[in-house]
Design a protein around this nucleic acid. Structure first.
Lengths: 195, 195
DNA sequence: ACCGTAGCACTAACGGTTAGCCTTTCGGAA
DNA sequence: TTCCGAAAGGCTAACCGTTAGTGCTACGGT
């Protein structure tokens, strides 16, 4: 599957990177709204249609790590030791993601996102997508006897934790705070007191 | 303040209603994407610019009750008896809102929303706005000793409850289920054991 | 060596949204 | 009562993201 980085794939990835890199640079230099798609395409030396072949929308240019982010969440739920409880595993991953996003180097990008309504909105719906994937991953785990609603609820709570922590004064502490609440919620949603 | 329903205000409200009504009718008849803004404006007999003076976007045409919805939530948190606990009050209001939205008469509209990506996304960000308002209302309540993060968390949970319940097979039961989790979360976020 | 397909380009257009500018009409102060 | 400022509405023209439609090129597997 992933064993064939043929020239084609490499070129495609290179084009994608070039577009995303150029776009991000321009956006950071002059502001998201002040830079048009046609301009990004020209600067990256590709056609507008090519740009949209790689990214579904202008906003998606900024969230290049979208898929990776989602995978990490899902793996945190599915790929854990059989006896490792779910919630702490989620907390650990969310913690890592928050740390990653609040790092010094990521500051300019997030500042751009936070100050651009279109990007904020896009990120919101992105999170919802991630929450749904996570919910599916949680529900897929056999022998955790929760309802679909409970799984979706916990998934949303976890994503909310990320969003809230990112905006909190002390992100790490905020993750712990929200996860204490999540832990409690998860407890009471437990497999209806197995007889 | 509200004591002057002058002719001006009435005309404005009438125009607004006429636009929203016309839009909704056309959308339901022929589908959201198949009806253009210019067409809605023409059918409502107003200029396109007038339409956008009343509604910030095409999507907003469908969510006319947006503000009312938000007010109900906020009032559920702020306008309750001094000794009435927060979470049950929220549950009651969310229950009512879910019942309202899953009513027979509202079915076509929600079916339209659920099958139109643009509307789904708009509703998501609308909910986030509502959650923020609710969080502010909760935090404003004196003597409930929670952190800002805890208030925002609970607010999001409540909004999530609405969203999840609306999509569940048994909405009312789903509200109760999620609110059992919320109640537990609210407990552990309690005012650090008041001395 | 060959063919199918995927990547990419170009042009044109569509549809939501806004800016600029003008007219009408109401509400309240003089 | 009169008059002015402001708000509502209108028209035109454009901007910008996004999407066909079409065709060319080059890579990858047979």
């Amino acid at each position: 599957m992933t064993v064939e980085p043929g020239r084609r794939e490499r070129k495609k990835a290179a084009t994608r990177q070039k577009i995303a890199g150029t776009a991000l640079r321009l956006f950071l230099e002059r502001g998201y709204d002040a830079v048009g798609i046609r301009e990004v395409a020209a600067e990256a030396d590709v056609a507008v249609t090519t740009l949209f072949a790689h990214f579904a929308s202008k906003e998606a240019l900024v969230f290049e790590q979208d898929a990776e982010f989602e995978q990490r969440l899902v793996r945190a739920a599915t790929g854990r030791a059989p006896d490792e409880p779910l919630v702490p595993a989620l907390r650990h991953e969310i913690r890592a993601l928050v740390r990653h996003c609040t790092a010094e180097s990521a500051a300019p990008v997030w500042q751009l996102i936070d100050t651009t309504p279109a990007l904020r909105q896009y990120e919101e719906s992105m999170r919802l997508r991630h929450a749904e994937s996570l919910a599916a991953a949680i529900a897929a785990d056999p022998g955790q006897g929760r309802t679909t609603t409970a799984c979706r609820t916990i998934a949303r709570f976890a994503i909310d934790a990320f969003a809230l922590a990112r905006e909190a004064a002390d992100p790490e502490a905020a993750v712990d705070e929200v996860f204490r609440m999540i832990e409690a919620a998860w407890e009471v949603s437990g497999p209806s007191r197995p007889a």
